[in-house]
Design a protein around this nucleic acid. Structure first.
Length: 579
DNA sequence: GCACTGAGCGCG
DNA sequence: AAAGCGCGCTCAGTGC
């Protein structure tokens, strides 16, 4: 059922001391260097067979063998174990990531009464084998990764039991179990995506850069196009030494030239009519490309034709992923043409159409809005029902409702939206009011917001009239956060289920493929969008799977409800074309 | 010289 | 059209 993976306690230890390495052959274990314990556990997390201890170097083989029985692997953190298994060519079907699940259970509104947080022991799960140096696709200098002290197998098993128990006694065991499974599957997907990497053509990237910026500059120098604009700006603004990269300097120069700018943000400058504004905006655009995704980025992040960011599952409080390395979740549209499929492959990019509003409909069961979503374009449907067919207005109004806009056009459109969709708007409003009162809110599957900080709570207790304004502002701010959390977080868990289901289907496909044949791989994930690097002859089948998985995810979470989650899936040679 | 913050901008 | 949610990254500027 479960198979626990843990660093082995040193021989003769009582299992409570720091451990993790087996010193050497003289201890009589016959093991040298780091060792690992594989402990079978039953469905309740109790030991159900003898533990095996193997040298770390033999772990991939041991895992492959145990995988025959398709256990659910249990480990402190997938991130600590799985990359090296993948490197050795070993993948697993499913796992339970104790750290990720602990993180969910601690804040879940479904466990508050029966009390995972109250009873559990807070064993730190962030230990296990040292993460390897960033996987650049090259062999590491050291064969055996360092293993240092971590929780004992017994502690990890107990943690699992407490987690399972808290799910069982929670108010929504089915939902919570699904969330934990999806989160854990996400950990596997994340490691596999990093391993695979986004296929990236350095030559195409360089062409984009030279087309826009000119030839690659010498170190510490500006590209020629940018330098030319700097000279132009210095003349136009009468500031011969201006460095436009300094907001302060730029601000002073603008003011001296009689330009009344409140800030140097592009969208504010756009309102101003002055000959220097055009070149300045052009400079900012080029500067962004140069500093964030220029030659230095290419040098640092692209190796062997692959971009391999690390994903942090649950790295965002709402359950979205964050990432480290190369700004993976902010790849500008400008350079997406450099993400290019290998010969004989295509990139299939699928994204969920208007995911958050559709999630709002599912959560609120707003029949009227569900009707508007019947067609392909949800915003057009909403526009037809209450905004005189003006799609842009419908979109602004709906986004504003989910973000908590109060001013501007979006704020003005709110009453109309509320009249038309009292249930949907009511749901986000209730989320906001709860947050303002300091309460927690949660997603459909049970990921919860952290409680407000001590400072926040103290501020709400203020009796000073002067501080009351700050307290109100902080309350509204938290209200906007909790309002959005419900929708963004529920959308994130839908995407996670989509990803997990797609992974399962792709594994089945790969298992049926002849040995050595090229197989489709998930290579990138961005909130509501997934990219698969796919052999050409399987594009049709995989595209189909991406649609099927979306339907499966919706059914798995919400059951049979009258709202679709359509995805757009496009296959092309580059990321730019596929979007 | 290092750590931190704020401004600004990229993505969803 | 306007500035409401969630992030990461780079640079300038500041404080030690």
């Amino acid at each position: 059922m479960y198979m626990l993976l843990a660093t082995a306690p040193p021989p003769g230890s009582d299992g409570t001391a720091p451990h993790g390495t087996v010193s050497n052959g003289t201890t009589g274990t016959g093991l040298e260097g780091p060792a690992v314990v594989l402990q079978p556990l039953d469905a309740a997390g109790a030991e159900s067979g003898p533990a095996r201890t193997v040298p770390l170097a033999h772990l991939p083989a041991a895992v492959r063998e145990a995988e025959q029985d398709s256990p659910r692997w249990v480990w402190g953190q997938a991130q600590r174990w799985y990359p090296q298994l993948l490197r050795a060519g070993t993948s697993v079907e499913r796992c339970h990531d104790l750290a990720l699940c602990q993180n969910i259970l601690v804040f879940s509104p479904f466990t508050q009464a029966g009390g995972y947080p109250r009873s559990h022991s807070y064993v730190p799960m962030d230990l296990g084998p040292e993460p390897e140096a960033r996987d650049t696709g090259q062999d590491s200098l050291f064969d055996a990764p360092v293993v240092h002290s971590g929780p004992t197998p017994a502690e990890l098993a107990r943690e699992l039991r407490e987690q399972l128990e808290s799910v069982k006694t929670s108010t929504e065991p089915r939902r919570l179990a699904l969330l934990l499974a999806a989160e854990s599957a996400g950990a596997l997907v994340a490691a596999e995506m990093t391993r695979a990497g986004v296929p990236w053509r350095e030559d195409l990237h360089r062409r984009i850069l030279s087309d826009r910026l000119g030839a690659q500059p010498a170190e510490f120098a500006r590209p020629e196009r940018m330098e030319a604009i700097v000279e132009e700006l210095r003349t136009l603004l009468g500031a011969p030494t201006l460095n436009p990269d300094s907001p302060q300097e730029l601000m002073r120069a603008l003011h001296r030239a009689g330009i009344d700018a409140k800030s140097t943000r592009s969208w504010e400058l756009m309102e101003i009519n002055h000959p220097a504004i055009g070149p300045l905006l052009a400079y900012k655009k080029l500067s962004r490309l140069f500093t964030a995704n220029g030659w230095a980025w290419l040098e640092q992040w692209i190796h062997d034709g692959r971009f391999r960011p690390e994903y942090v599952v649950g790295g965002v409080v709402t359950g979205r992923w964050s990432s480290h390395g190369g700004g993976a979740l902010q790849i500008p549209k400008q350079i997406r043409g450099a993400a290019h499929a290998d010969p004989g492959f295509k990139l299939i990019v699928a994204d969920a159409a208007q995911l958050e509003p559709r999630v709002l409909i599912a959560l609120s069961q707003d029949a009227k809005m569900a009707e508007a979503a019947r067609g392909k374009d949800l915003y057009a449907g909403i526009a037809a029902q209450g905004f005189g067919g003006e799609r842009d207005k419908a979109k602004i109004a709906l986004l504003g409702a989910m973000y908590g806009a109060t001013t501007g056009e979006s704020g003005r459109l709110m009453p109309q939206l509320t009249r038309t969709y009292p249930k949907a708007v009511g749901l986000v409003e209730a989320g906001a009011r709860a947050g303002e009162r300091g309460e927690r809110v949660g997603t459909y599957l049970g990921r919860g917001t952290p409680p407000p900080s001590k400072e926040w709570l103290a501020l709400q207790q203020t009796t000073s009239a002067e501080e009351q304004r700050r307290a109100d502002s902080a309350a509204r701010s938290r209200g906007r956060f909790t309002r959005n959390f419900v929708v963004q977080g529920s959308a994130a868990e839908w995407a996670l289920c989509w990803l997990a289901d797609l992974r399962r289907r792709l594994r089945t496909l790969a298992a049926a493929a002849p040995a050595g044949a090229p197989v489709p791989q998930m290579v990138f994930f961005l909130h509501d969008e997934v990219m698969v690097h796919c052999p050409e002859e399987q594009v049709a089948a995989v595209t189909d799977m991406m649609h099927q998985s979306a339907a499966a995810a919706a059914r798995l979470i919400y059951g049979d409800i009258p709202i679709q989650f359509p995805v757009t899936a496009v296959a092309a040679d580059t990321y730019a074309e596929a979007k």
